[in-house]
Design a protein around this nucleic acid. Structure first.
Lengths: 232, 232
DNA sequence: GGTTGTCTTTGCGCCGGCGCAAACAAGGGA
DNA sequence: TCCCTTGTTTGCGCCGGCGCAAAGACAACC
């Protein structure tokens, strides 16, 4: 069993390839180009012509979007098994975000011609992919609503919980977020400033809900955070 | 020529049906259920089981999302020719938003079984539909960024311009937004309060950039607004 | 025509969160 | 090992925007 199959085993389970045979998936994988990127690498940049649809096989990406003069937001973290840059399906489009590697990552990319062919010959995959995109849309709608309706501290709590669910690793201390995550990044993700994030985390640390260090956060009491996020 | 064909003429041009033959579109239309709703009617409610994908043939919908205790945002206005509730493609899903009729509207709806069949037998339509959803996603990402990075007044300016592009009608006074749009709704769309919107519009009215009345806005000087939205 | 309900305007006071500045902490590289 | 870069904390002052309250404007309906 080659490592290609090894991956498809893991990925086939995912929504994206549900309903497709294993060898079908293998063939589709064969049409893409696989590569490994080091931590910190930029896969593509916002505004560049979109040439490749990417599937993350291992590691993690960070998608960011820039506003005039430096302000940036983190649109999403992309864990292994998920798609980035579905927009690249359409030839004339530009990447709407920048993708950077957080953990060392392995990625498989298809150019639009290829991907469009694949979709037209595997309608099942097209429907699955639509589902993925729609779910992304719904998640973003929810975050958008949070941004309107909730105080900053609640948004930070929710963000921590969301990231914890995606990337938490149980340790004896509590649930560790297993990639470098700075105050600055958390601020860009929640739409606030690094100062406010720092103050907030400090206060939670005093309450014993979390423990944190340089680019490192451990959630000790998720339940307390959850209550805090929900409370009026 | 029946009025069904009349509509397909108008709609076929749209992205959604590009690359499909006219009779093919006709047949697809035939599989859905058409109905007319009066202004103010609710087509579906957030949280209800999603049963129908809707295409707006005429009129306009407003999509809203609720937060605990009354706060609501307007996710989007859906003009004629566009899809609402693509999520309803997937049987177990719930509507993520509430859809209400703004102008009297004619709508064609397909249940998930039907729509999924259509997509699986018309991969071309699936790809087109993906494009529509992806463009929606990108628009929302942009608005999300604006919400982070821009002052309230700039967001209101941008919102007005966006709505003007979609629904502006040229009059001798200026460009009229041709549906009822209250201060409250503009506030829910831009993530602020009706007070702030009112104050802002008043000030612009004094500058001669707009004219407004009860649930009615005319943009006199779009260029001024554009500069204002862009300015640092 | 009068009445009623909804939409809008504007004054006023308050406060959450921003952002500079400055000090401190933690790595990483030579 | 020391230095230098990058991240974090915290004090302090300021202000944009919120939200109540009360009055005015408009539309619709009897």
């Amino acid at each position: 069993m080659t490592d290609r199959n090894l991956f498809s085993d893991a990925i086939t389970q995912a929504h994206l390839f549900s309903g497709l045979g294993e060898e079908e998936v293998s063939r589709i994988f064969g049409l893409g180009r696989r590569s490994v990127y080091p931590s910190g690498a930029t896969i593509f940049r916002e505004g560049d012509p979109a040439v490749m649809c990417c599937l993350v096989l291992a590691g993690r990406l960070k998608l960011t979007k820039l506003h005039e003069e430096g302000k940036e937001i983190i649109v999403r973290y992309v864990p292994a098994g998920e798609l980035a840059a579905a927009a690249a399906l359409f030839a004339e489009k530009k990447y709407p975000v920048t993708a950077q590697v957080v953990d060392q990552a392995e990625i498989i990319g298809w150019d639009h011609e290829t991907m469009k062919d694949i979709l037209l010959t595997h309608p099942r995959l097209a429907v699955n992919m639509m589902r993925v995109v729609i779910e992304r849309l719904e998640e973003l709608q929810s975050r958008h609503l949070e941004l309107h309706a909730e105080r900053v501290e609640q948004r930070i709590a929710r963000a921590l919980l969301r990231i914890m669910e995606q990337s938490g690793r149980k340790t004896e201390e509590g649930i560790l977020i297993d990639f470098r995550l700075s105050r600055r990044e958390l601020a860009d993700y929640t739409g606030t400033t690094l100062y406010t994030v720092s103050r907030t985390l400090s206060s939670w640390e005093k309450q014993g809900w979390i423990a944190s260090g340089r680019e490192r956060i451990v959630i000790i009491d998720p339940h307390a955070l959850m209550l805090f996020a929900e409370k009026d």
